[in-house]
């Protein structure tokens, strides 16, 4: 015992452990996290790490992820005494609650949002915690910047901030609508169940969809169909003068 103590002190001195106690704070237990909590991860290591016990931040402050679901791991995975590898646990995050969480209606399509799972720490898993935290992650507008949003994602599709998660296009490059763009995706795409559909038929169907999307007449707007196959075409809405904007044409937003 005495030898161990001596060795510990010697090694602590050698490895300058004087700085180490502040290394990793205990944080907040995973089990106390709640749906709707927001998480700031200013270092890539924090985002990519399996667990996260850092205290949540207010969703109006810069953050990277927002919890949309807390789910319990069940079955054979839950029975394992040691936390399984992340790639096997990630599938446990159900994607179906995402759209209700975002407040998306039938004519809203979210784009660019990713699902990230955070697991209990090894200690928490060993203690019986099987709660899996499923977060939504909005990538950065600029690839060099840390991904950060300053607005809650819960119900975002009904607000003008939804530009951060809607699909637009600048010339041929897909971008989120918060970035400069000249076209906007209309949800849903046009479907025609007849054979030999003409360009005019596609345009007519896209105009119907676009009117429902904007919530009114298409004054000053053009809609361009881009057939994907014989029965389906993407509809892209744009200003007649080709204006580049960072707002959305979706109607009825707060």
């Amino acid at each position: 015992m005495a030898l161990r103590v001596v060795l510990a002190y010697l090694m602590a001195g050698l490895t300058a452990s004087c700085g180490l106690p502040q290394a990793s704070a205990v944080g907040r237990p995973s089990s106390t996290m709640a749906v709707g909590s927001c998480h700031r991860m200013s270092q890539p290591e924090e985002l990519y790490h399996v667990s996260d016990v850092a205290p949540p931040v207010p969703c109006t402050h810069p953050h990277q992820t927002e919890t949309y679901l807390l789910t319990k791991v069940s079955g054979s995975l839950a029975a394992e005494p040691v936390r399984p590898s992340p790639d096997r646990l990630r599938a446990a995050c159900d994607y179906r609650p995402v759209r209700p969480y975002l407040g998306a209606r039938a004519r809203d399509a979210q784009w660019g949002i990713e699902i990230w799972a955070k697991f209990p720490t090894r200690t928490e898993w060993a203690a019986g915690n099987r709660i899996l935290r499923c977060d939504l992650f909005v990538p950065a507008l600029n690839p060099d910047d840390a991904p950060e949003v300053t607005t809650p994602l819960r119900g975002i599709m009904g607000t003008r901030q939804s530009v951060a998660v809607r699909r637009c296009r600048l010339e041929t490059q897909d971008v989120v609508c918060a970035l400069p763009h000249d076209q906007e995706w209309v949800e849903p795409p046009a479907y025609l169940y007849t054979e030999d559909n003409t360009k005019r038929q596609w345009r007519r169907q896209c105009r119907v969809n676009a009117r429902a999307y904007t919530g009114g007449p298409l004054a000053g707007l053009n809609v361009t169909p881009v057939p994907i196959n014989d029965h389906q075409a993407e509809c892209w809405l744009r200003h007649e003068d080709g204006a580049v904007t960072t707002t959305t044409l979706r109607g009825g937003l707060r």
Binding site: A16, A23, A25, T121
Partner: peptide
């Protein structure tokens, strides 16, 4: 300076820490 929480920091023990200190 950056606060690390939980498993995000599992420091490697090395005498290099003395140099960094």
């Amino acid at each position: 300076s950056h606060p690390w929480f939980g498993e995000t920091c599992e420091p490697y023990r090395s005498t290099q820490l003395a140099m960094i200190w």
